[in-house]
Design a binder for these strands. Structure first.
Lengths: 171, 171
DNA sequence: TTGCTTGCAAAAATTTTGCATCTAG
DNA sequence: CTAGATGCAAAATTTTTGCAAGCAA
C-alpha cells in the first residue's frame, strides 16, 4: 500500500537537493494512509495533522504540498470551488479521474486506461516529461436534474449531498 | 465565431430565471472575441474590461464567471498556480485540452476526440448531465529537462518562457 | 559546517458578502 | 411592479514571504 518508503522518498528528494525532514515524512504518510478517493486541502491537512498531535505549521504544509506536486509525488486536484486538493500520485497504471457535480460538489471517481495513453501521446509530441494526467468531467447530478435543472431549479437549492466544499471526509 | 448571440444567451439565462444584463453581455463578448487558446482570470478580465472603458465591478466579474461556469457557458481551467482561468465552453466537438509545464507554466493545447467519448461514457454511467470534460496533463518541459531536471536544476531556476502566471496574454 | 527547512507573524492575493440602489422582464 | 443584479466597501479566505533559528547531509 505504501508507495514511498522512507528511503525511496529520501532518494527522491535528495536527488533534487531537497531534504527529508520529519515534517515531510509525516505529511507523505498521511497521504499514503488516506483511503483511495480521499483528498485533502492544505487547511484540511493542517487540521488533520493538528488533530493527530503533529505540530506542523501551515506554511510548511503549503510548501510541502507544492514541493511534492512539482516533483510528481502528489497530484493537485481541482474539484470544486475554493481550494485545491491533493492526493498521492499513484503509479501511472493506477491513476483515477474525477467527475464532479457543479451543483452539489459530489465527486465520483473512475478509471480509464485509455486516458493515460492520450496523455502520453501528447507528452511525447511536445517532448516533455509527464508528471500527472487527469480527466475532469464537470456535470450536473441526477438529483439536480430531477429537481428540474436548469429551468425549474430554485436559485438557492442545495443538493442533499452538498456539504460545504468537500466530497469526502477523512473517515 | 460568436457562439452566443444576444438571443441565445438571453434564452439560456432566462430559462434559469436569470437576466441578461449589459454587464453579462459585455463579459460574454470578451470571451467570444478571445483568440482560441487564451483564457482569463477574474482579475485579468476585470482589468481588460477597465482598459476598454467598461466599468464593471470586480464582484460582478466574479459573480458572472461563476454563473456562466455553472451553466456551462464558460469552462473553468486550472492551469498553473494562483487563480482560475476561464474560457468559452465551445460546442462539445471543439473542446480542447491542456498540457502544462509545472516549471514554466507554459501551456500547450491539444485536441483529441476520444476524450469526450470517455467523458460521455462516465456521465452516462453516473446518470448525470455533462457540462465540461477536460484532460489536464502536467509535465516538465524540454527546457527544464535540458537544464537537468530534476537533479541538476538550480532550485530557483526559471524557464525562459516563464512570465508570471500566464501562458498567453491578451494580444 | 553549510545550505535547505521550519515556524512565526505579517502581508499579499484572491474571493465573497451585506446592503442600498438599480433595472430587466 | 418585482425579483434578480449591480457597485461599493468591508470582510473572509486562501496563500505567500521575510527572517531568525534549527537541522539534515
Amino acid at each position: 500500500m505504501a508507495i514511498y518508503k522512507f528511503n525511496s522518498l529520501k532518494n527522491e528528494l535528495n536527488q533534487r537537493g531537497c531534504r527529508l525532514t520529519p515534517q515531510r515524512e509525516t505529511i507523505l504518510n498521511v497521504f499514503q494512509n488516506l483511503p483511495e478517493g480521499n483528498h485533502l486541502s492544505a487547511e484540511e491537512l493542517y487540521n488533520f495533522l493538528k488533530s493527530q498531535g503533529e505540530n506542523i505549521s501551515l506554511s510548511t504544509v503549503y510548501r510541502t504540498l507544492h514541493l511534492m506536486s512539482n516533483i510528481g509525488i502528489l497530484r493537485e486536484l481541482e474539484l470544486a470551488e475554493g481550494h485545491k486538493h491533493y492526493e498521492l500520485n499513484l503509479p501511472r497504471n493506477h491513476q483515477h479521474h474525477h467527475l464532479i457535480c457543479l451543483q452539489c460538489h459530489k465527486t465520483f471517481e473512475f478509471n480509464d486506461e485509455s486516458i493515460l495513453k492520450i496523455g502520453n501521446k501528447q507528452v511525447e509530441k511536445a517532448g516533455v516529461e509527464l508528471l500527472d494526467c487527469q480527466l475532469t468531467v464537470r456535470a450536473v447530478c441526477m438529483e439536480a436534474l430531477q429537481m428540474g435543472w436548469p429551468s425549474l431549479l430554485p436559485s438557492n437549492w442545495l443538493c442533499s449531498r452538498y456539504h460545504g466544499e468537500k466530497s469526502g471526509e477523512l473517515s
